[in-house]
């Protein structure tokens, strides 16, 4: 069966994020105040053919570790993409 999965890739804590910082600095000019700790990241959506959802998530976590993220600077996590 095909399971929809979302992988989120975010910069590890302590790794500088110039993109997030720039976005955060732009917000006050648009009237959005009180927004801090903005961090930019990526998400990937895919369908995975697997025996079960947990098997699909395991496969997604593995491919996220191998290709979608650089573990030196990024964390990756997989979650169900099923519309609840």
């Amino acid at each position: 069966m095909n399971y929809p999965v979302i992988v989120d890739v975010t910069l590890r804590h302590g790794i500088a994020d110039p993109e997030g910082a720039t976005i955060e600095r732009a917000l006050p000019a648009l009237g959005f105040t009180g927004v801090t700790n903005m961090r930019a990241g990526k998400s990937f959506r895919m369908d995975i053919d697997a025996e079960s959802e947990s098997a699909a998530l395991e496969k997604a976590a593995a491919l996220a570790q191998r290709l979608l993220s650089n573990p030196v600077i990024e964390n990756a996590s997989a979650r169900s993409g099923a519309k609840g």
Binding site: I15, A16, P18, E19, T22, N70, V72, I73
Partner: peptide
């Protein structure tokens, strides 16, 4: 080379974007 793990560290977007 850094992605391949042949050298340590990583290269990120320039600080000034």
């Amino acid at each position: 080379l850094t992605e391949a793990g042949l050298l340590p560290g990583a290269l990120q977007k320039n600080a000034g974007l």
